[in-house]
Amino acid sequence: MKTMLLNGLFCAVVALAGCTSSRVTPDEYSGFLQDYGRLQPAESVSGKEVMRWIDPQAKLSGYTRIYIEPSQLYPAPKPTAVISAQTLQMITRYFDSALKREFGKDLQLVEAPGPNTIVMRAAITGVSTRNEGLKPYEVLPLWLMAAAVNTAAGGRDQTVEIATEAQFLDGASHALLAQVVRKSDAQELENDRQPLTLDNVKSALDGWAVDMRQGYEKLAGSTAGRR
């Protein structure tokens, strides 16, 4: 029994120490973007960790229109009993509508690339669930046994993680203007059998769209006087 408790305590400490950053690491890159070598750690307007690159010579204030390509699921997803193909398609459609809603506040939405147009290409590059990490109070030996049994039975809350990669191009020259990689936690599932729904990730998708639009506003304002 003592050995089991010590092993449980060790696993709990590892779980707590393993709380990961929300920033995407290179081993999580999907291959969707043109050039990952330019990416640098940064913060979104809302203070979230991202990997990002922006062309320092780009004059974003010179663009008046935006063409948002239908977002992709990249690489091709493998639906599961928890994350269905239908839900994945609903996620991309909702992401598109969120991006159009936000960027439509600043730019004219168009149906094709062209002059004075930003082309946005985005992909959902990961949707996953994992056991929620042990809370501090669960490190206590009496709680460890209950936590271990609950995990084995599939009863622990499931943390939902969703990731995106996006690039922004000049609509006439196709030159790369900016690119960003980020991930977010979404609404938790009660256990590993509860199906994921669009409602579980809506807040993350809305947050991305708002951050991207506000980031554009900030950059466009800073380049307004650039020749």
Rank of each mutant, 00 (worst) to 15 (best):
R52S: 07
W53C: 06
I54E: 10
Q57E: 14
A58R: 02
K59C: 06
L60I: 07
L60S: 10
S61N: 13
Y63M: 05
T64N: 09
Y67Q: 06
L73E: 06
L73D: 10
Y74N: 06
A76Q: 14
P77A: 00
T80A: 03
S84W: 03
A85L: 11
L88R: 00
Q89R: 00
M90N: 07
I91A: 05
T92L: 10
T92E: 04
D96C: 04
K100S: 03
K100A: 03
F103C: 06
D106K: 04
D106L: 05
P113Q: 13
I118C: 09
V119N: 05
T125V: 08
T125E: 12
R130H: 11
G133N: 04
P136E: 00
Y137C: 05
E138C: 04
E138V: 02
V139D: 02
V139F: 00
L142Q: 06
L142W: 12
L144E: 04
M145F: 14
A146F: 11
A147G: 01
V149H: 05
N150H: 09
D157C: 08
Q158P: 10
Q158E: 13
E161M: 13
I162Q: 06
A163M: 12
L169H: 02
L169M: 14
D170C: 06
G171W: 03
A172H: 15
H174Y: 08
L177W: 15
L177I: 09
S184H: 14
A186E: 07
